Computed example of a mutant assay.
Amino acid sequence: MTRAPVRVIVCDDQDLIRTGFTTIIDAQPDLEVVGQCGDGRTAVDLARRLSPDIVVMDVRMPVLDGIAATRLLAGPEAAEPTKVLVVTTFNLDEYVYQALRAGAGGFLLKDAPADHLLHGIRTVVSGAALLDPEVTRRLVGRYAARIRPEGPDPADGLLSTRELEVLRLVAEGLSNKEIADALVISPETVKSHVSRILTKLQLRDRVQAVVYAYRHGLLT
């Protein structure tokens, strides 16, 4: 039985970018662009009407910016959350952090190769998170110190010592293999720890774990 293509909405205020993304995406047999728009408000309206699997979202746009649109589509108050992949020219720590807090499942730069865009769409749709380790490490180095912790860490006493170690390494952008190497354990054990961390803290994915660690001062 043939699976239906992943339904994608492309939202960018530049016609050439929208056309380019649409051409790249529609060339894939497992992906299909079902709508295009040039502002965040229209993206929200289209998503509610067309029920896509994912929205590829720019950040700086008229009417409603991509961060606000992402919050409406994928944030905790969204009635029927839609997955969002933020793709932007603005490689700024603040935009990355705001996008992730708003509920985005991943973040890419527009100058990334086409196969990164396709991989990003498939990854986020699958329920996994897409956050380049270098982006995460830069956030830790340049931005995390400016984020005010939101009071005592509610994970204190909830996570084991090992789980807290794993959470901190996840927040530093390490892959499961890198964490396994650092802690001298197997990648399968790391995967189990990550799964338990997400369950205990009621987090959706690794991206939310990164944001959680920033917000609760787990990185020093």
Rank of each mutant, 00 (worst) to 15 (best):
M1Q: 07
V10W: 03
Q14S: 13
D15G: 01
A27N: 14
A27I: 00
Q28F: 05
P29G: 09
D30A: 13
C37K: 08
G38M: 12
R41I: 03
R41D: 10
A47R: 08
M57P: 06
P62V: 11
D65A: 13
A68E: 15
A69W: 05
A69T: 05
T70K: 09
L72M: 15
A74C: 10
P76G: 13
A79P: 00
E80N: 14
T89K: 00
L92F: 06
D93R: 00
E94Q: 11
Y95N: 12
Q98W: 03
G103I: 05
G105A: 10
A112I: 00
A112K: 03
P113W: 03
P113V: 04
L118V: 15
H119A: 14
I121A: 03
V124F: 08
V125L: 10
A129K: 03
E134G: 01
V140H: 02
G141W: 00
R146T: 07
P152V: 07
D153Y: 03
P154G: 07
A155G: 12
A155I: 02
S160D: 07
V166Q: 02
V166T: 14
S175I: 09
I185D: 06
I185L: 14
S186M: 10
E188N: 10
K191E: 15
S192M: 10
I197R: 11
L201P: 04
V207N: 13
V210G: 11
V211I: 15
Y212Q: 11
L219Y: 08
T220F: 00
